[in-house]
Amino acid sequence: MENKSLISFEQGIEKLEQVINDLDKNNVPLDQALQLFNDGIGLVKHCNGLLDSAEEKVKVLLEDANGDFSTDNFIISGEGQ
């Protein structure tokens, strides 16, 4: 399995579905089944981690004159359109 930190939630779910499909195939050799199960559980942890850790607040994206980006916490203010 490649470096997990690079796997997005969407990719994680896709891979998880693939693992489940593979495990559903008849006559998976035992060592392969155990490996798949391990991978699957790893992906479950990874996806749960992504859901739990993404506790980022709303940010506002700012760009300075040099085209450099910065983000700041966004505070809702004002009424209107």
């Binding site: 779910i13 998880l16 579905e17 693992v19 489940i20 495990l23 559903d24 089944a33 155990l34 199960f37 699957g40 559980i41 992906l43 479950v44 996806c47 749960n48 859901l51």
Partner: peptide
Amino acid sequence: AGVRYSEDKLHFQI
């Protein structure tokens, strides 16, 4: 719930 379902399914399968 989707992730939990997958996890349950994995345990059942193994």
